Amino acid sequence: MTHDLPEQDLPLTDLPTTDLSDLYPDAPVFAPVFQEFGGRPRFTGRAVTLRVHENNPLVREVLGTPGEGRVLVVDGGGSLNCALLGGQLGELAEQGGWAGVIVNGCVRDTTELRGLNVGIRALAVHPRRSGKATTGERDVPVTFAGVTVRPGDLISADEDGILILPPHAHDPA
């Protein structure tokens, strides 16, 4: 359904990405490489970024802080060697009030993840857990799936895709 209302008349959280893409034709759109794993198919929020490689203690640390409706964007380098997010971290995200998590890598415990009220996107599933080295970077620009995400960018995701809204777009209500 296409909305013909001006953007200020309808909160962005109510608009599908197809309509947002029409409203903001220059908005960067993630390449369609992500699968949906969480129990919330639609989510919108400000980005918190991480860059990690096959180790997830930094993911746990960030998800242990109040999410306040934000979206954690994890650049795992596209590694398909282990999962950076599983059921326990998914529960942490839900309890902390995170709107969503986007992982450029793998997840596991998919049955548990689907039961959570948090949006979760990742490239694939992998049964192996990640390493536990406390390495990585937080609040840095990350580039993958054809887009660059900067801390504070407004991310919108639904069944049709994921995009980054322009700085002048309104915050979710």
Results as ranks from 00 to 15, higher is better:
N55G: 01
E54N: 07
R40Y: 05
Q35L: 11
F43R: 04
T44R: 10
Q35H: 11
V29M: 11
D14L: 15
V33S: 04
R40E: 10
V48M: 00
F43N: 03
P32M: 10
L50H: 13
L15W: 04
P41F: 06
Q35K: 13
V33K: 11
T49Q: 06
R42L: 05
Q35Y: 07
L23E: 14
F43G: 05
V52H: 02
L12A: 09
P28F: 09
P11E: 06
L50R: 12
R40C: 09
A31T: 13
D19Y: 02
P28Q: 08
L10M: 13
L12I: 14
P32G: 10
E36R: 15
P11W: 01
F30N: 05
P16W: 12
G38L: 01
T18R: 15
F43E: 02
R51I: 01
P16Q: 09
T49W: 05
L20Q: 15
H53C: 02
L20F: 13
Q8T: 11
P11A: 09
Q35M: 10
T44S: 09
N55R: 02
T49V: 09
A47V: 06
G45E: 07
L10D: 09
P11N: 03
R46N: 06
L10W: 08
T18N: 04
L23C: 10
A27D: 10
P41A: 12
P28S: 07
P28D: 04
A31L: 12
F34N: 03
P16N: 13
D26Y: 09
G38K: 03
Y24D: 09
T17C: 15
L20P: 15
A47C: 05
F34V: 07
D19R: 12
R46E: 12
R51N: 03
V48A: 00
S21H: 12
R51H: 04
T44E: 07
R42D: 08
V52K: 06
R46H: 13
A31M: 13
F43W: 11
T18Y: 03
H53Y: 05
H53T: 07
A31N: 14
P28T: 07
V48L: 00
Q35A: 12
E36S: 15
F30R: 08
P32K: 14
V48F: 00
A31H: 13
P28V: 06
H53K: 11
E54L: 05
V48D: 00
N55K: 00
D22T: 14
D14M: 13
F30D: 05
T17E: 08
L23V: 15
P28R: 08
G45V: 07
D22K: 06
N55E: 05
E54S: 08
F43M: 03
T13Y: 01
P32Q: 12
